[in-house]
């Protein structure tokens, strides 16, 4: 019995774990398509995580907490975008700066408000509503895996659909993609590539804020450094997913499963958790090398 029921909770937790990856990666996809390497995802998520739980506890309203967490993250994204685009700083360096800033700011504020730098628990924090529908849950296997998550998990799926539509079916998406692939053409149509870059950065701020909110609100506490490299994994998912929403979804499933495995596998299979956590990075670097090899030899072939 335990052998057959073991994968179901593991897959269930895969779905829960991948939601923040997915949201951050979808936001990062916009900046990536607009031609920017956005390594600030991690920091933006951390800001979202910190402020959403603080405001949710302060106001007693889940909605206000999430909304204000997103506002904080979008604001940070705006600073990041302003310095990168208007003060013409290197976006990679300002991305690093955003991460350092987020770490410093959350620590300093946590210390000043709560007097300690450890985990901050909020006793009367409202819980995230969970979708539970007995009739849906009766669907074998899928019902157990896909039903019974908090609503933000479903929001993250919705985001993937929404992003696909915006990117491929709207003028806005076309312009964002054009900004990355041919900014000169965008400029020639009388539009400002810089403006679309800023929009893309703000979108990444929005989704990262939401991603952070999921992390801290489902814990019901603020844990310092709660993002723990998830923003980086999200960035990696963009590359493994070959910069498409569907590819990112698949990459996030793979990474979510790896992390879920590392939680469940302890004592079951003889692989240290650290190795399983290293897996997303290794598989992505291997995929990147394979991809560049194929491109390299194909180009060479066409030259002959």
């Amino acid at each position: 019995m335990s052998n057959t029921s073991f994968p179901i909770p593991m897959l269930h937790s895969t779905i829960r774990i991948m939601a923040p990856f997915l949201l951050a990666a979808i936001g990062g996809l916009f900046t990536e398509l607009a031609g920017m390497l956005n390594i600030a995802l991690e920091g933006l998520m951390l800001i979202g995580a910190f402020f959403s739980v603080i405001f949710a506890a302060a106001t007693g309203s889940l909605f206000l907490g999430i909304a204000l967490g997103i506002v904080a993250s979008v604001l940070a994204a705006y600073i990041f975008g302003f310095i990168s685009l208007h003060l013409r700083a290197n976006i990679f360096i300002t991305g690093l700066a955003t991460n350092v800033f987020a770490e410093g700011l959350t620590m300093v504020l946590a210390f000043q408000i709560f007097g300690n730098k450890g985990v901050i628990r909020f006793a009367n924090l409202p819980r995230l509503p969970v979708l539970s529908n007995p009739s849906l849950q009766r669907i074998p296997v899928l019902g157990d895996i896909l039903v019974g998550h908090n609503i933000l998990v479903y929001v993250s799926w919705l985001m993937v659909v929404l992003a696909s539509i915006v990117i491929y079916k709207t003028a806005f998406g076309l312009r964002v993609r054009g900004t990355g692939s041919n900014p000169g053409a965008v400029e020639a149509t009388g539009l400002s590539p810089r403006r679309y870059r800023m929009y893309a950065i703000l979108i990444s701020g929005f989704t990262c804020g939401l991603a952070g909110a999921i992390l801290s609100l489902q814990l019901g506490a603020y844990v310092p450094g709660v993002t723990a490299g998830r923003g980086w994994i999200a960035l990696v998912a963009i590359y493994l997913g070959n910069k498409t929403p569907l590819g990112i979804l698949i990459a996030c499933i793979v990474f979510g499963f790896a992390e879920s495995l590392s939680n469940y596998a302890q004592g079951v299979i003889d692989v240290p958790a650290d190795f399983i956590l290293a897996f997303p990075y290794i598989i992505t670097v291997v995929a990147m090398i394979a991809y560049s090899m194929i491109r390299h030899y194909r180009l060479r072939g066409s030259e002959r």
Partner: peptide, 19 residues
């Protein structure tokens, strides 16, 4: 708290490449 240094370093990081 000590992390004030991080904020100062972040600000420098932000602006050091700002042309």
């Amino acid at each position: 708290t000590f992390e004030l240094a991080k904020i100062a370093q972040a600000v420098i990081f932000f602006l050091v490449t700002a042309q």
